[in-house]
Simulated scan of single mutants.
Amino acid sequence: MASVDLSVRLEPSVKADLEAEASMTNQTAAEVAEAAIAQYLSGRKVKREAVRQALQEAEDGVFVSEAAISRWVESWGTADELPPPEPDVFPGR
């Protein structure tokens, strides 16, 4: 795949960290920056999709009650840890 040039202004400390990471991983600063940008954008895409799904569930009137969430959280780290709760509130139905 062809690449294109991009100029970015960085704070001196960020540039130093970028160059140090590149040196430690035997990569160029551009390779480290590209990987970091790609990972950041991928994370943003995942977050947007999660928000979209949550908004759709809210519009559909599908919710998990506070009580169910509390039981689940209280079970964390115990021998009887519960699976994530299923929706149990359906106001539109």
Rank of each mutant, 00 (worst) to 15 (best):
E66L: 09
V46S: 07
Q39C: 09
E81F: 04
E31M: 07
E49H: 14
D17A: 09
A67W: 08
D5V: 11
K47A: 12
Q39L: 15
S23N: 11
A50G: 09
Q39G: 06
V46T: 15
Y40N: 06
T78Q: 04
E74G: 07
A38H: 11
S42R: 15
E11R: 11
A58M: 12
I69N: 11
G92T: 14
Q39A: 13
Q39F: 10
P12T: 05
L41G: 03
T25P: 01
A50V: 10
E74Q: 13
K45Q: 11
S65N: 10
K47F: 10
S42C: 12
R44F: 11
T78V: 08
A2V: 14
R48A: 13
P84Q: 07
E31C: 05
A30H: 02
M24F: 15
S7D: 03
S3K: 11
V14I: 13
V64I: 14
V64S: 01
W72A: 00
S70D: 14
Q27Y: 04
G61K: 03
R52L: 13
R9I: 04
A58S: 15
E81G: 02
V62W: 01
A68R: 00
P84G: 05
L41R: 06
R44V: 12
L6I: 13
Y40I: 05
D80W: 06
D60S: 09
Y40F: 10
Q27H: 11
K47N: 07
A20P: 02
E31H: 04
T28Y: 06
L41Q: 07
E86P: 03
T78N: 04
